[in-house]
Amino acid sequence: MHGPASPGWLLVALCAATGAYCLLRMRSSVEEQRRAAGGEALMGFGMAAMAVPAAVLAPPGWVWAAYAVVFGAAGLRALWAARSGRHHLHHVVGAAAMVYMAVVMAASPAHGHVHGASGTPVLTGALLLYFTGYVLLTGVRLIPVVAVAVAVAGGGPGAPPVPGGGAGAAGRAAAGWGDRPELARACRLSMAIAMLAMLLPL
């Protein structure tokens, strides 16, 4: 985060696009989907702001304290929601990683310059290990979901029936594009990759 300009802007674009898509997912008719999408939108835009190159914007120290408070509250909310679903635990880890990075940046003499930031090696390593595993596992899980979606869209032989609707397009329309699991997983996968890129310099 706040490293060289080109990789920094790529991270900003990736995280902002993911956050914008999560905002669109909040239009889902499923309440659980809306709640998850709202937390992921906050994470995406927060990561985008944190990744802005320091040459463009070097935030004052109080900004990092604000980050810690906002994402600390988001982590507590996700922890409370985890009572009804273990998938919320990933949001807890993501919020904790944001709080950790904010604390590290606030404590660094450069206040946002990556070369002046130094985190705790054990915590950084644990977070890197977690997000690396998450990226690999989510990528593997995403492959069969995408394959099924393509088969349904093509309506070819062996295409599974779509509950509540006829063939292909009608079934997807009934399910709602914001509720499609492969899109939600791809969204989380892109943010996990961005998180890895932001944690590595620490």
Rank of each mutant, 00 (worst) to 15 (best):
68 A>M: 00
48 A>R: 05
48 A>Q: 03
84 S>F: 13
56 V>H: 15
112 G>N: 09
50 M>I: 12
144 P>S: 04
91 H>D: 13
53 P>N: 06
52 V>N: 04
150 V>F: 15
101 M>D: 11
134 Y>R: 11
49 A>Y: 01
100 Y>A: 02
125 G>K: 00
93 V>P: 14
136 L>S: 13
130 Y>H: 12
93 V>Y: 11
149 A>D: 11
65 A>H: 14
135 V>L: 04
61 G>R: 12
54 A>V: 13
122 V>A: 02
136 L>V: 15
62 W>F: 12
64 W>L: 05
51 A>V: 07
142 L>S: 11
82 A>Q: 10
115 H>W: 15
54 A>S: 12
104 V>T: 06
88 H>R: 05
53 P>M: 10
97 A>N: 01
137 L>F: 08
66 A>P: 14
61 G>Q: 07
126 A>E: 10
71 F>I: 10
123 L>R: 08
144 P>K: 03
123 L>Q: 12
65 A>C: 11
100 Y>M: 00
108 S>W: 06
95 A>N: 13
58 A>H: 15
78 A>W: 05
66 A>V: 10
87 H>S: 10
102 A>N: 04
118 S>E: 15
102 A>E: 02
87 H>K: 11
64 W>S: 11
122 V>G: 02
59 P>D: 12
119 G>M: 05
147 A>F: 14
65 A>V: 10
82 A>G: 12
141 R>A: 04
125 G>W: 09
115 H>R: 15
76 L>S: 07
57 L>H: 15
57 L>I: 09
149 A>E: 04
84 S>Y: 13
59 P>Q: 12
123 L>K: 06
58 A>K: 15
53 P>C: 06
61 G>S: 08
42 L>C: 12
72 G>A: 02
99 V>M: 00
103 V>M: 07
81 A>F: 01
127 L>Y: 02
45 F>M: 01
108 S>R: 02
142 L>I: 11
53 P>F: 09
59 P>V: 07
148 V>F: 09
140 V>A: 15
89 L>I: 09
130 Y>K: 04
61 G>K: 05
118 S>W: 14
45 F>V: 00
80 W>T: 11
101 M>G: 09
77 R>D: 01
90 H>N: 13
128 L>H: 04
44 G>T: 01
131 F>R: 00
95 A>Q: 06
131 F>K: 00
94 G>V: 03
86 R>V: 05
120 T>E: 13
149 A>M: 03
148 V>C: 12
75 G>Q: 03
51 A>D: 04
85 G>H: 10
100 Y>D: 06
92 V>H: 07
130 Y>I: 04
48 A>W: 00
127 L>T: 01
129 L>I: 07
91 H>K: 05
145 V>Q: 14
128 L>A: 02
101 M>Q: 11
134 Y>K: 08
97 A>G: 02
132 T>K: 00
93 V>F: 09
137 L>N: 09
120 T>W: 09
142 L>N: 11
129 L>Y: 10
53 P>A: 08
148 V>E: 14
146 V>M: 07
89 L>W: 15
115 H>C: 10
77 R>Q: 05
144 P>E: 05
